[in-house]
Design a binder for these strands. Sequence first.
DNA 1: GCAAAATACTTGACAACTCAAACATATGTC
DNA 2: GACATATGTTTGAGTTGTCAAGTATTTTGC
Lengths: 144, 144
Amino acid sequence: MSTVNSSLQLLMNLSRAQAIIARRLDSLSAHGLGFNDLVLLYLVGQAPGGKIKRIDLADKTGLTASGITRLLLPLEKTGLVARKANARDARVSLVTLTAAGRRVLKEALHTANAVALDLLPKEQLKTNASLPGILKLLGANITV
Amino acid sequence: MSTVNSSLQLLMNLSRAQAIIARRLDSLSAHGLGFNDLVLLYLVGQAPGGKIKRIDLADKTGLTASGITRLLLPLEKTGLVARKANARDARVSLVTLTAAGRRVLKEALHTANAVALDLLPKEQLKTNASLPGILKLLGANITV
DNA sequence: GCAAAATACTTGACAACTCAAACATATGTC
DNA sequence: GACATATGTTTGAGTTGTCAAGTATTTTGC
């Protein structure tokens, strides 16, 4: 009989939740952005000075540096982000938001916030934040 | 100033955690299995009668039916799972484990359990079991 | 009992990543 | 100040999914 410890079980549940959430946010976010695109724009917007290294984006998102390069490519092409050199270190190329990028980010965040609240109501998050509660909650809200 | 509510923030953290976890389990699981392959084998093994519909696998994993078809394809080819018809309904083709599948599953679960405990120690899971707490914990254990 | 709708699965075309290796620059050591 | 090593980014090739549309079968409602 193949069994699984509670940690692995939890990782499986997280995996399921994330798959469903990402899919839902991908399709709803509109504005031509996927969930990760939105996260990237958001992180750039939040970064001190409005600029951030690609490797820091990789760290904050959990993706690889390679993935970041590939995700940013279309965002550069459509003019939502731009490159800026770093005076101190010629290896890095900083990512910044363009005016268009800020505008799209704002709109997309509005939508995404609503979807997130739908998936995971804020008040439940606060009061019932025990593990069984949360899993049930994710499971319940998410069930197809 | 673009802001994000706590629910969306949590989903972003969850996304990060999942990306890192899946990557880690993918590379360590060995036996030629990715994380999702392992989950599929496990779910088949746990299913009553040792057989399960593809659509139920999709539901339990959070993936699409299409994704399940594509993930199972190599597992069928290497002989870890097999097909069984359903007498009552000719549309469904049930998934079962082969003897080889059971053996590989058992070995892979052993590895995956260890990795999961490394990422998310069981005793911490009990005491500090709020989802934000868990994600913080994952973030801490995970930080590169 | 038959057309319309729903369900289970697969397929073609493509997107969103990964890994490994390359390249460019920076930093430490002696 | 040269050489080994570390860091930041990109690229080639492949994998792992998605979506939309198709096929096959079952269920529903009249």
